[in-house]
């Protein structure tokens, strides 16, 4: 801070001194270009080019040994996704189920947790730590941990179930439970995210507003539905869209917990992209799937940008 206060004063010239930073004489109007040129080139190489390449590949019969000899097939790769041999529809349905459950569960759970955290002041930091802990951990470790908690024979969850007389469950090892078991872990891991966003929203509600309503005789239930919730509507939309977009991109948990199995029970779009592109080296199919996913996510992102706009502008 001292530097800034000094920069108003007359000694600034002495403070600027003769270091490397001040010997670097860059004309003012050249500076933006000097910074942005490398950044834009970088963007082109590592982001725009890969997208264009994905589009190009999705329109071709891609030959791995000699990509330049690839044959133009228009939308063949896309229409092939609908063939019975393709796993696209399975993965698409699984992804929709996953996204739906994860979003519908995480938004209200986040809000409830925030309402609960809001009741505590001195001990809030401790509870915040517990609720948020799974988010900061690597998903790979979370996946490994739950794979074991879920273990059909030796896992503690099944031991507890046996204790209360419920038969042992297969969880991630059986097709009809696997997807739900993975999404449950994902929900458990991310409750804290919505919770802290909602908590910030709750804390920004002016005290006087609630006080005034209370004086007017509103009970707590009315307070929540008539005042708190409407004031959190923007926050709720934000959390919903962020959660939706995040849910489409699940990969780590699936890769480590089930690798798409058993059978194809937990194939989701991102896992199918990896599987088609790397394991089966069908780059055309993989690119087509990734672009379908891109379009879906883009729609939600545009909604998100619309929602965020009021915050951007001054």
């Amino acid at each position: 801070m001292a530097t800034i206060e000094d920069s108003h004063g007359s000694q600034t010239r002495d403070r600027i001194g003769n270091g490397l930073l001040s010997r670097l004489r860059i004309p003012r109007n050249a500076f933006p270009w000097l910074v942005l040129t490398p950044v834009l080139i970088y963007y082109f190489v590592f982001l725009i080019y890969p997208i264009l390449y994905a589009i190009w590949v999705s329109l071709h019969l891609w030959i791995i040994e000699d990509p330049s000899a690839s044959q133009f097939v228009l939308f063949r790769n896309y229409s092939d996704l609908l063939l019975p041999t393709s796993r696209f529809l399975d993965a698409f349905r699984n992804t929709l189920v996953y996204v739906f459950i994860r979003t519908v569960a995480l938004v209200p759970l986040g809000l409830l947790t925030a309402l609960l955290l809001y009741q505590f002041r001195r001990t809030q930091r401790f509870y915040l730590f517990c609720v948020f802990a799974p988010i900061v951990c690597p998903s790979a470790a979370i996946a490994v941990l739950w794979k074991w908690l879920y273990h059909p024979r030796f896992g503690p969850i099944n031991a507890q179930l046996a204790e209360i007389g419920v038969p042992r469950q297969g969880f991630i090892t059986v097709a009809d439970q696997a997807l739900y078991s993975v999404v449950a872990v994902d929900i458990w891991q991310h409750i804290g995210f919505g919770a802290v966003i909602f908590l910030a929203g709750l804390m920004s509600i002016p005290e006087q507003l609630l006080e005034a309503a209370r004086i007017d005789g509103a009970n707590r239930w009315q307070l929540f539905w008539r005042i708190t919730l409407p004031l959190l509507s923007h926050t709720t939309l934000f959390v919903t869209v962020i959660t939706l977009i995040g849910s489409f991109q699940v990969f780590d948990l699936i890769l480590v917990m089930t690798s798409g199995g058993p059978g194809y029970a937990t194939y989701v779009l991102s896992y199918l992209i990896y599987n088609e592109g790397i394991l089966r080296t069908d780059m055309g199919a993989a690119s087509a799937i990734s672009l379908v996913m891109f379009v879906i996510i883009m729609i939600f992102t545009v909604i998100q940008f619309r929602l965020l706009r009021p915050r951007w502008e001054y």
């Binding site: 950044v39 834009l40 080019y49 990734s290 883009m298």
Partner: peptide
């Protein structure tokens, strides 16, 4: 224009670029 070009890349899921990036 430059700013929007850079910002719009926020909507690109990693799954879309991961394979081309791998080959690059």
């Amino acid at each position: 224009l430059f700013f929007m070009t850079i910002i719009s890349s926020m909507m690109v899921p990693f799954a879309v670029v991961v394979l081309p990036l791998y080959f690059l």
